[in-house]
């Protein structure tokens, strides 16, 4: 295998956007695949690329760094105020600085959570909107600092808070209020489908978490792949909820089984290393992988069969009405 040579050219003007983007933060995880591919396709000189562009799935280390740096003068101001014995100024500066630091910390946690694996689509898991809280604290910090530390009036302080909130939203984004509901759950059957999907997704999330805790790279990769296959099947069921009854065995037996076995393996493996146990677990994963693939194929075939029947019925109807 030959490695293609790195482009050896100087930095040009059109390289600036990706460069600055890497400094502010890379493509958002929720961005469209098209946008993401366009982001990746913009070439950077080799060494800069390795330095600045994060690998897919990796949390960009510089994203959110600005929030740690910008309030630094406040710390200096607090120290100077303390040295001069101005308690009011010290409290204002230190309070503002603490608010900004809390905001930066929450934002960092929020950004990390964004990059931590696939987001749940069906399961409504309670997750704190950390970035939104970070944005709110940034705005409060800017307002408090403007009013108490810089001595501005209430109007200007509010304007500072508003500008920083807008800036935060544009630079880092806020979490959407409430999760988008992917399925209508008004009537009883739809609600049952939504519940089954949420439960199955919860199991898949557990499975993916277990996969992350494994040390064996091969078993980790197999389990991660199983998770992806499972998600594919759930998407198919979500597209055609009638498939739920066909996939019941998959949801109730195999998914639950593999989740329990994987969790059991992960906890036992931590305490005792056994080649036999590893091999058995591998065999189970291979079998389950085949079952998942079969399940996917069966759902696809049913789709095709159903479509064939619909086409046939439509053709018969058109013939009967003398159109064809």
């Amino acid at each position: 295998m030959t490695i293609p040579p790195e482009p050896s050219r100087n930095l040009r003007l059109h390289d600036l956007p990706p460069l600055v983007r890497s400094l502010i933060g890379a493509a958002r995880p929720g961005a469209s695949p098209l946008a993401a591919s366009a982001h990746r396709s913009i070439p950077l000189p080799g060494r800069l690329r390795t330095l600045l562009q994060p690998r897919p799935g990796q949390v960009p280390r510089r994203k959110g760094a600005l929030l740690w740096v910008l309030p630094a003068p406040l710390l200096l101001g607090a120290v100077i105020a303390l040295g001069r014995g101005h308690l009011d100024s010290f409290l204002a500066d230190a309070g503002g600085f603490a608010l900004f630091m809390a905001a930066a910390w929450l934002t960092k946690r929020g950004i990390r959570a964004d990059y931590a694996g696939p987001q749940p689509r069906f399961a409504r898991l309670a997750r704190w909107p950390l970035k939104t809280l970070g944005g709110v604290l940034t705005a409060i910090g800017a307002g408090v600092t403007a009013h108490f530390a810089a001595g501005h009036g209430p109007g200007i302080s509010l304007a500072f808070a508003a500008v920083s909130a807008i800036g935060f939203h544009l630079a880092y984004g806020l979490e959407p209020l409430g999760r988008p509901r992917s399925l209508r759950s008004g009537d009883e059957p739809s609600r049952r489908v939504a519940e089954a999907l949420a439960e199955a997704e919860g199991r898949l999330l557990d499975l993916e978490q277990t996969a992350q805790s494994l040390t064996n790279p091969e078993l980790k990769a197999r389990l991660t792949r199983l998770g992806a296959q499972g998600r594919g099947i759930l998407d198919q069921i979500a597209d055609r909820p009638t498939d739920l009854y066909r996939a019941r065995k998959f949801l109730n037996v195999y998914l639950e089984g593999v989740q329990q076995v994987a969790a059991g393996y992960a906890s036992t493996h931590r305490r005792a290393e056994s080649r036999e146990l590893e091999q058995n677990f591998r065999n189970v994963l291979v079998t389950v992988e085949e079952v998942f693939e079969e399940q996917r194929q069966r759902l696809l075939e049913t789709d095709v069969l159903d479509l064939d029947i619909q086409i046939e019925v439509l053709k018969k109807q058109l013939e009967r009405e003398g159109i064809v």
Binding site: T138, G141, L170
Partner: peptide, 11 residues
């Protein structure tokens, strides 16, 4: 970029 400029300008 605009968001970053606004953050720098305010904070």
């Amino acid at each position: 970029l605009l968001g970053t400029v606004l953050l720098v300008a305010s904070v």
